[in-house]
């Protein structure tokens, strides 16, 4: 199980993937907005998404799990 966490506190602007999707390493999975700029979150490695914890509009803190992959 791999977790993708927020590197910075911010608002979830967009979620590009859903449960069951295969993602590649380096693929943009979520877009956060923080300090008036958009910060893309990339998958550090490839895998299948098993859970998406972040919803558009959520405020997340640094270190919060955004999605889980296997």
């Amino acid at each position: 199980m791999k977790e993708i966490k927020a590197a910075m506190a911010g608002t979830v602007l967009n979620v590009f993937i859903g449960v069951g999707d295969e993602v590649n390493a380096g693929q943009e999975v979520i877009m956060l907005e923080s300090m008036k700029m958009e910060i893309p979150v990339e998958a550090s490695e490839g895998g299948k998404v098993t859970e998406v914890k972040a919803n558009i509009g959520d405020f997340v803190n640094e270190g919060d799990v955004l999605l889980v992959m296997e």
Partner: peptide, 17 residues
């Protein structure tokens, strides 16, 4: 200088930097 912070203040990720 119109400042919002001083030495030892933290710039937090919640607002404009």
């Amino acid at each position: 200088v119109d400042y919002g912070y001083v030495s030892q203040s933290a710039v937090t990720p919640f607002y404009d930097p």
